[in-house]
């Protein structure tokens, strides 16, 4: 169990920083608490006593939502379920919607925040690959010498390793900003040991846009679960961009991921699945992007 002497719910950024200063070194931030509470149980951290829990989910800046044709800005405390039930957001971030149906379950998603997922920095965090695919930037804030200052960085630089991020002890993750990708075809592939409430062994985010000639105008691929941090598959992307979407080319792009798997456990399995996910994930994304998607028929053939 997680025990605390105080549970604070600041209603403004300034109040949050005041509380953080007061409890310096003796607090922990929570948003949805869906990582924090299960962590403080037997078999993991066990009983944990923390002087203060500071709940950041009621701070207006962390609940922001701005969506237009080109950009998206969402507060860090945005629950994962928003990517499914907020139509504008789902259209601007089609791969986040696909990711969200695989994320935990409807109830956890109602509480679990996108910021918590990023800060928790699990190698298998589901939201990270889609956000990498969106070239997301994170915005961090802190109060130093009485002044609130903000800084930004690419998500890829923010997540540093399992449980490690660039967040400083006195910082809060404020918001995430990224490109809107309306009209992109998207797919999120994920495999674990079941189909709900499942931690990914491998997950892959794929988004694609086709040009008038049905060549690949833009695509982004990102993977989670195969190394200490989720990452983009730039080599495969560069190879495919501008070309035709044939099965042979997809296979070749997938082949470029062979050396990428760093996880020691289930290494060969992850390598094989990643390879397959690149092909199949892209094929579905292509189909959703309106492509003729020649490969899909063959791939999804089931002899039933």
């Amino acid at each position: 169990m997680l025990y605390c002497d105080a549970y604070l719910t600041p209603r403004s950024l300034a109040d949050a920083f005041t509380a953080m200063a007061e409890y310096r070194g003796r607090y922990r931030l929570v948003a949805g608490a869906t990582d924090t509470l299960p962590w403080a149980r037997a078999g993991r951290a066990g009983d944990v006593a923390i002087p203060a829990l500071i709940d950041v989910s009621a701070i207006p800046e962390l609940r922001e939502r701005r969506v237009d044709a080109t950009r998206v800005r969402i507060g860090a405390a945005t629950p994962m379920q928003r990517f499914l039930d907020d139509g504008d957001l789902a259209r601007a971030m089609p791969v986040m919607a696909r990711c969200a149906v695989w994320f935990a379950d409807d109830q956890i998603r109602a509480a679990a925040t996108v910021g918590g997922n990023l800060v928790n920095a699990s190698p298998a965090a589901d939201a990270t690959p889609p956000l990498l695919a969106h070239d997301a930037q994170v915005e961090l804030a802190c109060a130093r010498e009485g002044k609130i200052t903000r800084r930004r960085m690419a998500l890829g630089d923010f997540v540093r390793g399992p449980g490690k991020t660039a967040l400083e002890a006195d910082e809060i993750l404020l918001a995430i900003e990224c490109a809107a990708l309306p009209g992109y075809g998207a797919e999120f592939e994920k495999v674990g040991h079941r189909r709900s409430l499942v931690i990914a062994t491998v997950c892959l985010a794929a988004v694609v846009r086709l040009d008038a000639a049905h060549a690949i105008a833009d695509l982004r691929l990102a993977v989670g679960g195969v190394g200490p941090v989720p990452c983009r598959l730039h080599e495969s992307e560069n190879f495919l961009r501008g070309g035709a979407a044939t099965l042979a080319r997809l296979e070749e792009a997938a082949h470029m991921t062979v050396g990428l798997v760093q996880s020691r456990t289930r290494h060969d399995y992850r390598r094989d699945v990643l390879h397959g996910f690149v092909v199949r994930g892209l094929a579905s994304a292509l189909r959703r992007a309106g492509g003729a998607s020649p490969p899909v028929g063959e791939l999804e053939a089931s002899h039933a």
Partner: peptide, 9 residues
């Protein structure tokens, strides 16, 4: 899931 909801929420 109320086992993951701090009562303050």
């Amino acid at each position: 899931k109320s086992c993951l909801v701090p009562v303050a929420k």
